[in-house]
């Protein structure tokens, strides 16, 4: 719902008043108010951890994925994030064999690599999750009621309507009306995470940053995809998008040799923090840990 007469403009970004203006501009419906934690103290205290794992050999010269290397990267990601010593225990600290697990990959523009979905599925099965309890949960027609745990697997990419189209946007089809989240309403993408059938189910987010896309499309242009050769993971969707945005912005500036800001600016990240209380967007509240290849890390 939108309050009339108040618009977020370029000047809000220049003045640093986007959060305030958004708070005034967007009226929160009652179902959502009840779902959003009461105050800032209710948000996870302390810093959010974002882990970046990279391996130069995960892609060959033809950009084909080396599954063995990817599997090792996944293990580093899970153990690094959970603090467990090996992958099975790491998975079992996030999900249980009783869970019905929905994997949520990206399908368009910069699709999640099939190899990543495969190694995740194989490792979940190895950890004792029954194969029949693991399903693809991307799309409008998914029965979310039966799913108890979501693992979001978006591809890192910019987006022409929302600035960035990675983590927070990855559940847009659950809304049943993705067009309602275009235009200025992209700020409201965070409300989808509060839908009763979605809320609280996300156990882990792993961003496929093997070959991100730094221009916003809307359609794929191979000139803006580059071999970052990384996986990024966190349990905080907002922190992950904030770091993804930083990487994309740095790559854009490097490509042009001058500032090349994403346009429109991705207001969904700040709104997900300030209005929907889904996590931290301020970089001061995010701890970044990196493992592996460090060339052109862009953070």
């Amino acid at each position: 719902m939108k309050s009339k007469n108040i618009s977020i403009t370029r000047r809000d970004f220049l003045r640093g008043t986007v959060g305030t203006t958004m708070g005034l501009a967007f009226l929160t419906p009652s179902w959502l108010s009840a779902s959003i934690p009461g105050g800032p103290q209710a948000k996870a205290s302390g810093k959010s951890l974002v882990l970046i794992v990279r391996d130069e050999s995960v892609l060959d010269s033809g950009s084909l994925v080396n599954k063995q290397v990817l599997s090792a990267m996944l293990e580093q990601t899970l153990t690094g994030l959970t603090g467990e010593k090996e992958m099975n225990r790491a998975w079992l600290s996030l999900v249980s064999p009783e869970d019905v697990i929905g994997l949520v990959p990206t399908t368009l523009m910069n699709p999640t690599h099939n190899e990543l979905i495969e190694v995740i599925t194989e490792s979940l099965v190895a950890a004792g999750i029954p194969q029949e309890n693991i399903r693809n949960a991307q799309g409008r027609l998914v029965n979310l009621e039966s799913i108890t745990a979501l693992i979001s697997l978006p591809g890192l990419k910019a987006h022409w309507l929302t600035g960035i189209g990675t983590v927070i946007k990855n559940y847009v089809l659950y809304s049943g009306a993705p067009r309602n989240y275009h235009y200025e309403d992209s700020a409201k993408l965070g409300e989808i995470w509060h839908l009763p059938q979605v809320k609280g189910k996300t156990r882990l987010i792993i961003v496929d940053a093997l070959r991100p896309v730094c221009d916003k499309g809307p359609q794929f242009d191979p000139r803006y995809r580059w071999p970052y050769k990384g996986l990024m993971a966190s349990t905080d969707p907002v922190a992950l998008d904030a770091i993804g945005l930083k990487i994309i912005q740095a790559k854009r500036d490097k490509l042009r040799g001058e500032p090349w800001p994403l346009s429109p600016p991705p207001i969904c990240i700040e709104a997900a923090d300030k209005i929907y209380k889904l996590g931290h967007s301020n970089l001061d509240n995010i701890e970044i840990k990196t493992i592996g290849w460090t060339q052109e890390l862009l953070i």
Partner: peptide, 8 residues
């Protein structure tokens, strides 16, 4: 997408 003025 070229030059941001406002989402409206």
């Amino acid at each position: 997408s070229l030059f941001y003025l406002s989402h409206e």
